[in-house]
Amino acid sequence: MKRRLNIWLVSAGLALLMAAAMLVCSTMGVVRFDRTELLQSPIFWNLRLPRVVLSVLVGAALSVCGATYQSVFRNPLTDPYVLGISSGASLGAAIAIVLGLQSYLWGVGAMALMTALLTILLIFKVASTGNRMHTTTLLLTGVCLTFLITAAISLLMALHQDKMESIIFWTMGSFASASWMDVTIVLPVTLLGIGVVLYYSKDLNLLLTGSETAQSLGVEVEKVRRRLLLFTTLMVAFSVSACGVIGFVGLVVPHCIRLVCGSDNRRIIPYSIFVGGIFLLLCDTVARTLIPPNELPVGSITSLLGAPMFIYLLYKSKRRI
């Protein structure tokens, strides 16, 4: 009871913080305005605001997905990027572009979803031995799939040089072309996905204790796991189809929360929404304001923070592997 109140209070605080960060970040940029100019400027309304909103949505989605994968695979080192699911989605996006599906509202996302689901099925087939997935096998599978997919995308680019630029965009990850259209595509999927994960957040705790234990404690393990993976993959696919592959968000954010609040997913999941949103928003703001008028790819900033974190976690969990 008290715990529940606390979760609501902290979530509300984080939501306020996120709103404040969105306001501040949307005033920052190469073109500077005073207050009245800002509200009349199409740069603010049509470029910055959708970009800020999209980065928050994608940050929230990727963080929640990372936290979910860490519990479902019982492995602290997983996130959509490390597992190769983001790359899998980017392959679908690239294929959709080659086929000219961008003109359809959900075209790129649907194709990305298909290849992302294929990727996760492959990971399951290759990495699972009996009930347990070994950390090394799981990570190696992810890395190898990423290699394979990168090669496939290069091949696609070589064969379709006219579309090369838009494909490169998908593999690098950037919010530079964010539009309200992207927001309308990503928003419902993200809300739906986060809702499903929140609904199962207690089951995530039980899954952490092992699938047999979870089952004997009353969790329909197979059903819950399948649903969680389906809806998180959906979120990853649509994030990737809107802004490309952005790595390590799902690793950094849940772990920072875990350091402060422990490993109860009933806290981690709701906090991940807001902390993830703020994190990616700040990364993107740095990416577009650090060396004006040029932009850094936001994926390189998240990787600069995330890769060392990954190495630290690997070092810390060495005994368990």
Partner: peptide, 23 residues
């Protein structure tokens, strides 16, 4: 290797009597 305290662990035994989202 879990990060749940003994109390939280035992509390998981109450799961079959709880609904989703219910504390």
């Amino acid at each position: 290797d879990l990060e749940f305290s003994a109390f939280e662990t035992v509390l998981m035994g109450r799961n079959p009597y709880q609904r989703h989202l219910q504390n």
